[in-house]
Structures are given as structure tokens and as C-alpha cells.
Design a protein around this nucleic acid. Structure first.
Length: 276
DNA sequence: AGTTTAACCTCGATGC
DNA sequence: TGCATCGA
DNA sequence: GTTAAAC
């Protein structure tokens, strides 16, 4: 499940592989719904001949700014992958969309479950503008998170997964951060003390930074642009560690469902609050 | 309003 | 082995 | 992972 560290790793890999500077010379669409907008005809027409200027990330979106004042946004959802390959190389299964590049390579979008989406728009802010703050941005401070938490009575876990609240957090890093902060996922945000809010802030930073250094977490499908798995899976403390001893107190990790998502906690280190 | 369920899809693991 | 179910 | 519909 590509979250902030995984998407950031892909963005960096694409830059390192010199995608910026390349021109799109052709488009091949194998699963129509992969292109969310515009329609296939104008997608192809508006993209062909354009040059990639920058490759960046916002939340879980990959952002390619193009020469003609247009932007290509790519969201990998659950199983999306991006590869760069010579056009001569045989296609792997689940290829949904590919772009011919001017140097003979292709940018290929694979997606087993077909949930991934690509948007071509002259107004990327109409999509990205809904996202909450970037948790690793230097301008995002402890008191920012504390203020955001104070105004919400939602449970912590669904709130962390809400991209309008904070951008880039998914199931893995929500569970990991809540464990590090010693907070139960069903605690309500506006019941946190200032210290608990600060703990969550630092836990998020730590978890995301470590995962980024490890080039992402590969549990199922995530791969880097070179096809290699990430290395953060060995650093997970609670996610999918049901029954394993808590690294802090040794009691078995438990799995529960919160907001429809599988959730992993140490029931001793993350006690439920009053009325939680 | 807040929370859960279902939908979108395919596939591997699990169980009978 | 084959088929249904479950969950990612 | 995201979104819309249903408690």
C-alpha cells in the first residue's frame, strides 16, 4: 500500500532515472478507467509532445508538471506500480497504461487491482488543494497538529487516514505512529492532552522518516521504480504483527477493526481512554 | 455528524 | 484436489 | 486506497 514514504521514493527514483526532460511521444491505454480525466481522446492529444519538467509528490499523489502548463497526477491506490523500461522489453502482467518516451524508454503503470488513477489537468490545485498539511514539511509544527486535533472529535485512526486532515498517512504508518505515541486508535482526537498531541507529532515524523530512509514498506505489492522491494518491513513494530510480542512490553499484539480497517495495537501500551 | 459497510478489482491464503 | 470465503 | 451509500 503506497503511502507517503513509498510515493516519495518513487518520485525520487523517477528523478534519478532522468524522467524530467523526457518527452511523451505516445500513449497506450489498456484499462480505460485508469485515466480518471479527461476522456481518452483528449488525454492522448493533450499529453503527446509534452515534456516532463518536474516530478514531485503531494500526499500520496505523484505530480508530473509538463511543458504545456498541464500537470499529470498519478495515484497508485493499493497495488499501482511505476516502472521505466526499454520499449523493446516485454510487458509484465497487469499493465494498464504506458507512455512512450523520446529516448526509447517507456513509463509503465502496472496495477493488479485496477484501483489506481491518473489525472491530466491544467488546474492540479483543484485536486491537491483538498489535501491536509504535509507531515514532513518543516512548516508543519507540533502546535499545528495539536490545534488540528483539538477541533475534531473523531477517533484518531480514521482521522489520520483522512487525507483532508493530514496528507500521506495510510494504514501501515497510522498503526505504527499510534503505537509509538502510546495512543489507542479509538481515542477521540479532542481528548488528547498537549503532551499526547506532541507525542503523536513526533511519532508520525519518526515513523515516516524511518520508512523513507528504508525506501518504503513491501508487504504485498509495493515495488520501487527498479522493481525492487522496500526494506522497511523489518522495522514494523505492530502492523501485521498479530500475536507477536510487543517490542516494548512483550504482551501479544492484537488486531481489531476500526473504521473498517484492520488495526494493530498493543493493548497494554495503548490503553483506551475514558469513553474511548 | 459520525461511523460502518459496500463498491471498485484481482489474487493468494485459508478452510472444509 | 476443488471450491467457497476472506482479506489485502 | 478512496468514495458513496447505509445505519
Amino acid at each position: 500500500m503506497p503511502e507517503l514514504p513509498e510515493v516519495e521514493t518513487v518520485a525520487r527514483d523517477l528523478r534519478r532515472a532522468h524522467l524530467p526532460g523526457q518527452t511523451f511521444t505516445g500513449v497506450h491505454l489498456f484499462w480505460a478507467r485508469t485515466v480518471a480525466c479527461p476522456d481518452e481522446t483528449s488525454f492522448r492529444a493533450r499529453l503527446t509532445g509534452q515534456t516532463v519538467e518536474t516530478v514531485t509528490r503531494r500526499g500520496k499523489f505523484l505530480r508530473l508538471d509538463l511543458s504545456g502548463a498541464e500537470t499529470l497526477l498519478i495515484h497508485l491506490r493499493m497495488t499501482g506500480r511505476l516502472y521505466l523500461a526499454p520499449a523493446s522489453e516485454a510487458a509484465m502482467p497487469h499493465l494498464r497504461l504506458s507512455f512512450d518516451l523520446g529516448d526509447g524508454r517507456q513509463l509503465r503503470f502496472h496495477d493488479m487491482r485496477k484501483f489506481g488513477r491518473v489525472y491530466l489537468t491544467a488546474d492540479p490545485d483543484s485536486i491537491l488543494g483538498k489535501l491536509g498539511p504535509e507531515p514532513l514539511d518543516e512548516t508543519f509544527r507540533v502546535d499545528d497538529l495539536q490545534n488540528l486535533l483539538a477541533g475534531r472529535k473523531m477517533m484518531l485512526k480514521p482521522l489520520l487516514l483522512d487525507q483532508r486532515f493530514i496528507a500521506g498517512i495510510g494504514n501501515i504508518y497510522a498503526d505504527e505512529a499510534l503505537f509509538l505515541a502510546g495512543l489507542h486508535p479509538q481515542r477521540h482526537a479532542n481528548t488528547l492532552s498537549p503532551d499526547e498531541g506532541a507525542a503523536l507529532f513526533h511519532a508520525l515524523r519518526r515513523v515516516l522518516t524511518l520508512a523513507l530512509e528504508n525506501r518504503g514498506t513491501t508487504l504485498d505489492d509495493y515495488r520501487t521504480v527498479t522493481g525492487k522491494p522496500g526494506e522497511n518491513q523489518d522495522s514494523l513494530l505492530v502492523f501485521r504483527q498479530t500475536g507477536q510480542p510487543c517490542p516494548r512490553c512483550g504482551r501479544p499484539i492484537e488486531r481489531l477493526v476500526v473504521g473498517g480497517r484492520g488495526t494493530h495495537i498493543c493493548p497494554h501500551c495503548q490503553p483506551p481512554g475514558e469513553g474511548g
